[in-house]
Design a protein around this nucleic acid. Structure first.
Lengths: 344, 344
DNA sequence: GTTCAGAGTGGAACCGGTTCCACTTTTGTA
DNA sequence: TACAAAAGTGGAACCGGTTCCACTCTGAAC
């Protein structure tokens, strides 16, 4: 077990001072004679020298690192988001420290503390909704915060990247209404979240536009964590006047919901027309393939990283940015026109 | 934008020296009078002081951080592995820096360099197979390396956690052979990888035990990255004597392969009996539900983290460990006895 | 009443970089 | 040829922790 060489080793071997080596390492920090630069570079190569990040961070006061705080990676939505973010970050020489919250504000708080200790220069997060002061403190200490997918309205000064939740929910409901459905179930995230509220609002707007009344019992708010989606579907199907259409507007619950539909032998689209908010290859492999609201993950990832990096380099104007990316509706075969059923 | 307090601020406010504060912070590093300990703790609380990781790392020479190096997170296998590892690490106060390789040795090399710069104390990785010297160098510098899922045989001194690849492939083939199938396709990773070799060996062993000859054309080696799984399936189905059974032993290619099967309208299990190496909820949602070799991700994650942490704390005996975890076979409805087809 | 062990404390060096500043050497221009 | 400006260099402080060591002050043992 060898010891890695330090900048002083390099300086000694090259017959120069550490200042010169440092200037070679950071080209814009001062002049170096071309000949010496070559010497130093050669020695660096020979010794296999690499600057230690910790020393640099200590001196700089901040790290070339961003924190990524998501619920959990077993959710493909977050997994693919993380994948893209890591990929984009890498090409900018930025590392990603990953933390998961399990939707638990306490775990989230812990993660934020840890990220502070690490002096990260930015954080990309899908916030749980709690820890408002903590987020504010983070910003106060100069950490660039970008919320993705969800947001916390109480925090005025945060950059946000999300999909067009209102429009997407509205479009889904409109589509089913156009097919003749009047009783449409909505499975969505809790109203305490920004996405939950927006999607419910979109759903209601579509009903209003069609002069349909909204039955509040058809709207089921389900947490992102756990398997409550299946139960919600079960109870929707058990209603006396059961819905003939269903919008699953909680990406984390799509699998749970669909599993229940399959288990109880629901015929799609004959018994139930289904649209899910998801963009996952397997939705296409089912029979029938599910109609989806495609979640443009790449765009979410790219924009949020751009914001964080832009802020880090200070080349973004002041004031919070709010970026909404379009989510396409992709009709497949899980929706059918309503056939009037004989009332039993 | 405030400045975070340092240990000297705390010392000054508490009327003690930095040594005392440091000893309060690290309880086993020396005695502190109970009264002063209280004072210091109170001041820390009041000031909201948190030690900076960079300073500690610089002094300690290593970071309480592990690197996680996987192909990509859009593969649910790695995503869930990462999820579990992050979760387990968190409970030990260890952070995870995530890097992806896209199966590209160059990117892998870059990642390893970066992890070295960060002085991580451990790395958990699914190696691409290249960079042998680089892995050796990492170990040489005292970084604890654990390979998970795959390994590099040339590296003698590495801890490895993987599933029982040989047994799992053997069992899959046996199962299909017992159903009367004699021409069984095998889609697996390249023979240049340890998993690829082991699975092919298991497949061949099952044939040998049943005195069946192995048609090398039925074995298709496909990279982990990309979509080649679909094409391999296509070409298997186009063989003059097409297989009646298929084992998809490349987890990364399961989706691609199944998509192709669905696209070309293969009837499962009537036309083709299928077993896949995967453990993903959607395999159950298909019709018919797919028979699987369950990948015990939790076990892989837990064991690999245990190894890394154990090494970090130096409480593991010398010498490399090789842990194989059992992968269960779960029969569902994608396999059927072979019905003798009329030869055309 | 010594002697000694051990608790308790603070000063200062150290980890490995960056950066400021003072100083010397070169270059360009009048 | 003179002199200012710019290029080039190294010393030393600094970032914020940890740790070694020397020192003081107890209290217990003889």
């Amino acid at each position: 077990m060898k010891k890695a060489p330090t900048i002083r080793d390099v300086a000694a071997a090259a017959g120069v001072s550490v200042s010169v080596v440092s200037r070679v390492l950071n080209p814009d920090s001062g002049p170096v004679a071309p000949a010496k630069r070559q010497d130093v570079l050669r020695v660096i190569e020979e010794l296999g020298y690499r600057p230690r990040a910790a020393a640099r961070e200590l001196s700089a006061g901040h790290a070339l690192t961003i924190g990524l705080v998501v619920t959990d990676l077993s959710n493909p939505f977050f997994a693919r988001l993380a994948d893209r973010i890591v990929w984009e970050a890498r090409s900018h020489g930025v590392q990603v420290v990953l933390m998961t919250t399990q939707e638990d504000p306490h775990l989230e708080a812990e993660s934020l503390d840890t990220l502070l200790d690490r002096s990260v220069s930015g954080v990309i997060a899908t916030p749980t909704g709690g820890n408002i002061e903590k987020w504010a403190r983070l910003q106060d200490l100069g950490v660039n915060v970008v919320f993705v997918d969800r947001t916390i309205e109480e925090l005025g000064d945060v950059d946000v990247v999300s999909i067009e939740n209102f429009d997407s929910a509205q479009r889904s409901a409109e589509y089913l209404i156009a097919l003749g459905h009047t009783r449409i179930g909505l499975l969505t995230g809790p109203r305490s979240t920004s996405t939950g509220r927006a999607r419910i609002a979109g759903y209601e707007a579509a009903h209003k536009a069609a002069s349909l009344e909204v039955d509040p019992l058809l709207i089921r708010e389900v947490p992102f964590r756990g398997d409550a989606g299946g139960d919600a579907v079960g109870s929707l199907l058990a209603m006396p006047e059961r819905p003939t259409g269903l919008v699953v507007g909680n990406t984390a619950q799509v699998q749970s919901a669909v599993r229940r539909l399959v288990q109880v032998g629901t015929r799609i689209p004959d018994d139930l027309s289904v649209i899910v908010f998801d963009d996952n290859p397997w939705t296409e492999l089912m029979s029938p393939p599910l109609s989806i609201i495609r979640q443009p993950l790449d765009m979410l990832a790219v924009h949020s990283l751009e914001l964080v990096l832009g802020r880090m380099q200070g080349k973004l104007p002041e004031g919070p940015r709010f970026i909404e990316v379009k989510a396409d509706f992709l009709a497949r075969n899980s929706c059918a026109p309503l056939v009037q059923q004989p009332t039993h």
